[in-house]
Design a binder for these strands. Structure first.
Length: 573
RNA sequence: UCGGGGAUCGUCCAACGGCAGGACUCCAGAUUCUGGCUCUGGAUAUCUAGGUUCGAAUCCUAGUCCCCGAACCA
């Protein structure tokens, strides 16, 4: 895991999240404020369970919750919903805090854990029993399940449902004291076994689970269930608007029921929105975990992962992710956002900020025959043509250069602007060259070298006689170039909806990563630091790998290609 | 067959009884020392059927389709 180290900010840019765009959640909050409800306060929370890394779907929720708080002058808490010790891990707790901070949000001193409320939750549970709103059921899990009925048949009351509350209380205390085996008893709410909403058919509130909790250790052997713990945690923190995803919609009556039975400080309003789905991507914790466990990717921060850690290592900026979350909006319709929107916003952000450099990924040797051996010309190259204030740098030019193999074709197709025998092109920021001859490997017939001449009158890139060339190529001087490894990342899945079939893993794109080990980059890149972002001119946006890049071994990740309209033309018949 | 939710360009989001709009994608063109960026133009939508109304994406009625729900997961 790479530390939070945001190299992506340029000096004059602020990382302050922009004000949340209007959406139906904000409209509800605004209306509450207008009507003077909830004491005129806005207090939200982001409540992850620490059982996996955060992904871009969580970013939507984070932006919504923190964004609403910011927009209305309120607060947003970070709370770990850690009520299931068997799946949770401190590694996740650390990564989640790291990622939320990196995204640009601040919970200040309001970092909470549901596990810190275990005492209070337990005391409330005793109250529930005393007021005959909950009872201890001593049936097996199977019996309870069978009794619950199904969608079409009502449930049946448990034989223990009318157990005297004193008896339930005594049993519950013994559950807590560790006198029973796992599963021997559960605490259930006494609601309505015939409800059409299965969540109200006497849901389990507490279960016995002898598992070591990463925070509370072995203090507890009973743990509260989500429906019971979440609403009370919200109330204890004074949450006004409890925003969650659509699948909790029919849990809302239970959320409200619990709070109605107890003398909690307040009764937050649960509001549900549609979770993010992205084309060519999986966003379920289960599947992401499987990718990691099965080593189909290189960990949670593999640059192909939609995790915030993966996106960060890939070269995404927090600003781009936030802009994306704003742009997709918030609604109750479940849909699939086209990943090309994410890519568009990424390019938009990177185009504005990334310094331009030249790098040759698949080198083809070029000899400038009329350029003296050992001589060097230094040309001035702009760091960012759209931001001249970012200055320029000197790039060395000499007799032997490298250009991209893709930029030469012996038999050029129509509309070919690049190099071919007899053609003239510009080397970016340098000069015009013409290709006179080609050298081939006598065995393979592969083109191994281009023999060219330069026009000394075109120094800087424009011909003295005003003649135009259509093609401009990037290049590096062979003698001055640094070697680099470049990792070309592409979409992890080749199927638009990888969740479609029986096994999402068969849609993994076999070309999602290809490693190029013989790349040549301009000397300037020798001083680049892990995390630095660049545009390799004419190729795409790249970042120095956050964990493996070093001065002695340059490693760049391709964040995203530049749009390539030539590929379209070239691809046509 | 039960409960909850949702249906607007290919995709996402707007329009809150008064000209269906924006963004992405796609197509065409201009510009360009990045076949990038930028700019211009174009294509494409109100689930269906009735009703209310001067006027309906919006209100009413009846359908249709899609999503979620039967963990001692969250």
């Amino acid at each position: 895991m790479s530390a939070v180290d945001d190299k992506s900010k340029t000096g004059d840019e602020t990382s302050a999240p922009s004000i949340a765009a209007p959406n139906f959640v904000n409209e509800i909050i605004e209306e509450d404020l207008r009507a003077g409800r909830r004491g005129g306060q806005v207090h939200t929370r982001f409540p992850p369970e620490p059982n996996g890394y955060l992904h871009i779907g969580h970013a939507k929720s984070i932006c919504l919750n923190f964004g609403a708080a910011t927009k209305f002058g309120g607060l947003c808490n970070l709370r770990f919903d850690d009520t299931n010790p068997t799946t949770e891990d401190p590694e996740y707790v650390a990564s989640i805090q790291n990622d939320v901070r990196w995204l640009g949000f601040d919970w200040q001193d309001r970092l909470f854990y549901a596990s810190d409320y275990f005492d209070k939750l337990y005391a409330y549970a005793e109250q529930l029993i005393e007021s005959d709103k909950a009872y201890v059921d001593s049936q097996t899990q199977e019996q309870i399940a069978a009794e619950r009925g199904d969608f079409y048949r009502p449930g049946q009351d448990s034989p223990f449902r009318n157990r005297p509350s004193a008896e339930s209380l005594a049993l519950f205390r013994r559950m807590r004291a560790g006198e029973f085996d796992d599963g021997a008893h559960v605490l259930r709410a006494k609601i309505d076994m015939r409800s059409g909403n299965l969540n109200l058919r006497d849901p389990v509130l507490y279960r016995i689970k002898r598992a070591h909790h990463y925070r509370s250790g072995d203090t507890w052997c009973i743990y509260p269930m989500y429906d019971y713990a979440h609403c009370i945690s919200d109330a204890l923190e004074g949450i006004t608007h409890s925003v969650c995803t659509l699948e909790f919609e029919d849990h809302r009556p239970l959320y409200d029921w619990c709070l109605d039975q107890l003398p909690v400080p307040c009764h937050p309003q649960q509001i549900e929105f549609a979770r993010l789905n992205l084309s060519y991507t999986v966003l379920s914790k289960r599947k992401l975990l499987q990718l990691v466990d099965d080593k189909l990717v290189d960990g949670w921060d593999d640059p192909r992962m939609p995790t915030l850690a993966g996106l960060r290592r890939r070269g995404y900026t927090p600003e781009a992710i936030r802009a994306f979350c704003e742009r997709i909006g918030v609604s109750k319709r479940d849909g699939v956002v086209d990943v090309s929107l994410l890519e568009y916003i990424l390019r938009e952000d990177l185009n504005a900020r990334a310094a331009r450099v030249m790098a040759v990924l698949r080198p083809l040797r070029v000899v400038i025959e009329n350029f003296p051996e050992g001589a060097i010309e230094w040309f001035d190259a702009q760091n960012h043509p759209e931001h001249p204030e970012q200055g320029s740098r000197k790039v060395p030019f000499s007799r032997v250069l490298y250009i991209e193999q893709d930029d030469f074709r012996e038999e050029p197709p129509k509309k070919w602007f690049r190099l071919t025998r007899g053609a003239e092109v510009r080397l970016r920021y340098a000069c015009l060259i013409r290709c006179n001859d080609i050298v081939k490997d006598p065995q393979t017939g592969e083109v191994t070298e281009l023999r060219c001449t330069w026009d000394p009158q075109s120094r800087g890139g424009t011909a003295s006689d005003g003649r135009k060339v259509k093609g401009t190529l990037h290049w590096v001087s062979a003698a001055h170039a640094r070697d680099a490894e470049v990792r070309l990342y592409d979409r992890l899945f080749s199927q638009e909806n990888p969740n479609d079939g029986d096994d999402f893993r068969r849609f993994i794109n076999p070309a999602s990563l290809s490693v190029l080990r013989e790349c040549k980059v301009e000397p300037h890149l020798g001083t680049s630091q892990p995390g630095d972002l660049f545009q390799f001119e004419r190729l795409g946006y790249f970042c120095a790998d956050a964990s493996e890049h070093q001065a002695s071994k340059l490693i760049f990740n391709r964040t995203i290609e530049l749009r390539d309209s030539w590929a379209k033309i070239d691809g046509k018949p």
